[in-house]
Design a protein around this nucleic acid. Structure first.
Length: 503
RNA sequence: GCGGUUGUGGUCUAGUGGUUAGGACGGUAGCUUCCCAAGCUACCUACCCGGGUUCGAAUCCCGGCAACCGCACCA
């Protein structure tokens, strides 16, 4: 399906639409409608359930989304999230100053003022990489963070968080104090991140405000006990940086065990890579051949990341593999930076272990991107019929209830909805149009189960009195089920998978 | 940010200076005892925004906004 077709369908069904639309809309901002919101909550719930399920010591918090300037200075965002850009006066192309100057100054331009960069361009007679003219203008800084005036005097600055991770690092000392002084300690946040993208594109893939789900695992690199055997035989579709350097673009299937052995990756890292794969494949229902674990090279990843694999999903509407999640081994960079900046001691002494500054393993997940990818992957056009094959536990509407005929069966259908809701099943009534249209509507939004009340249900003389038809989305098959048996039958529909068998 | 293309009901679209702005799908209400988008009737909803030209603009011009494609960017 093409991107525009998919977007039209999502708009038509009220999943999402452009923000501030009656004012002509704002690029890079989208509002979620009822179905989009419900779907997104399901994805977030599935994520939380899976990754918080990895350990008893992983917790979810809800931090503020505004960061004082001192925080982003220490984190490096103030400096590194700013790219001086130069524009060619003749052909109007623009480039990062670093790119233009890479021949004359291979060390990069970090820390140079716009005037100093301009001087370098002038002295070295640098030409425009596009048209070859000497027409490059003075560079202007472009920071991807949204700055805020802070306080009445407006002298201090603050920023909308460009990633949710920073708040977790700031919360670490509190979490340590209130916890049981053991590593690993996990802090999960599902929240918004804000970036002033120059050119928002592709709807949910380049937004100015978006939702991240991130788990920061603080751990002792010399001691990270894990049930590695549980994932050792898992086959991972990895594309190593070294393979890419040799021109490979297809992933190779490598077991977790091999990735640690011959692959030379730390066990704790591979374990979480495997859990990422399982989450995308088994929880989100992404077909395995559409998942790729792509290792970022030294040049591609941020300098503080010692290891980085992106979890990529092949999305037809966006023309191929796109990053939805990532696994970053950030070492002790973050806690050390914040410790140095504040003068606070962020080293800890775990029970029966030597004192250390914990290392961080970051699991990050783009909720909006996942939403788009799942819609893209699941929607099938079968002639007139649009069918969304969505895992039942992710469906925005888990169960729909219809009266076969609105008048004679409407009351019984409404009563059934009430009964199901009392059992904690989010059933939704639809009594408009005809039965076939209702089935079609629900197929289009991925509702796995439709329940229909008919004449036999309400006829005390009929053998099928008190039973309803239960219709499965993918097969369209129906069967009659007694109403009292229905809650048990439907309870499984909304339950999120967990990473390990409950103990 | 740059260049190109485009902007008509919820969706897809017809209309290229004077139209009651047409259709299809959709939605709502009713009829039809009706389990997979059936039929019939009625109704609902639109010219992206702001200027200009003109007796008259959805239509032509300028500016803005937005989308798509390409370039650049995406620590």
């Amino acid at each position: 399906m093409k991107s525009e077709e998919l977007y039209a369908l999502l708009r038509r069904r009220g999943f999402l639409w452009p923000s501030a639309e009656i004012y002509g809309a704002a690029a890079g901002l989208y509002d979620y409608g009822p179905l989009g919101h419900a779907f997104k909550r399901r994805i977030e719930g599935a994520w939380a359930s899976w990754f918080l399920g990895l350990s008893e010591d992983y917790y979810r918090i809800e931090p503020a989304e505004i960061l004082p300037e001192a925080v982003v200075r220490a984190s490096g965002h103030l400096e590194n999230f700013t790219d001086p850009e130069v524009t060619c006066a003749r052909c109007h192309s623009s480039f990062r100053a670093e790119t233009v100057l890479e021949k004359v100054r291979p060390a990069g331009v970090d820390g140079l003022s716009p005037a100093e960069i301009g001087k370098l361009i002038e002295e070295n007679q640098v030409r425009c990489p596009s048209c070859g003219e000497r027409a490059l203008e003075l560079p202007r800084p472009f920071n991807l963070m949204f700055g805020l005036d802070w306080g009445a005097a407006g002298k201090e600055r603050a920023y909308l968080a460009p990633e949710t991770a920073q708040a977790s690092y700031l919360a670490f000392h509190r979490m340590w104090d209130v916890g049981r002084h053991a590593l690993p300690l996990g802090i999960a946040v599902i929240g918004h991140a804000y970036r002033n993208e120059i050119a928002p594109r592709q709807v949910l893939f380049r937004m100015r405000s978006f939702t991240q789900a991130e788990l920061q695992i603080f751990f002792d690199p010399t001691h990270f006990p894990l049930p590695f055997e549980e994932v050792a035989d898992e086959s991972l579709p990895v594309l190593r940086a070294s393979d890419r350097a040799n021109g490979l673009s297809a992933p190779r299937a490598v077991t977790a065990r091999e990735l640690v052995g011959e692959g030379g990756l730390p066990e704790f890292y591979v374990y979480h890579l495997a859990q990422e794969l399982r989450f995308f494949r088994d929880v989100l229902g992404v077909p395995p051949e559409r998942i790729r674990l792509l290792e970022k090279s030294d040049a591609e990843r941020a300098f503080y990341n010692r290891l980085q694999f992106d979890v990529e999903v092949s999305v037809e509407s966006l023309g191929g593999f796109r990053e939805i999640g990532a696994l970053h081994y950030r070492g002790d960079y973050d806690l050390t930076r914040h410790g140095t900046a504040t003068g606070k001691e962020l080293a800890v002494t775990p029970t029966n272990r030597p004192r250390l500054v914990p290392h961080v393993l970051e699991l990050t997940f783009g909720v909006d991107r996942a939403l788009w990818a799942l819609a893209d992957l699941g929607l099938e056009m079968e002639g007139e019929r649009t069918l969304w094959r969505l895992p039942a536990h992710l469906a925005p509407v888990p169960v729909a209830v219809f009266p076969l005929l609105a008048k004679p069966h409407g009351e019984a259908a409404r009563a059934l909805v009430t009964t199901l809701r009392a059992e904690g099943i989010e059933a939704q009534l639809d009594d408009s149009g005809t039965i076939g249209k209702r089935y079609a509507r629900m197929d289009e939004v991925g509702t796995p189960v439709c329940v229909t009340v008919d004449g036999e249900t309400v006829d005390p003389a009929h053998p099928n009195h008190g039973t309803v038809t239960v219709r499965a989305r993918d097969s369209k098959l129906q069967e009659r089920v007694a109403i009292p048996a229905l809650p048990a039958r439907l309870a499984r529909v909304g339950r999120f998978p967990r990473p390990r068998a409950e103990r």
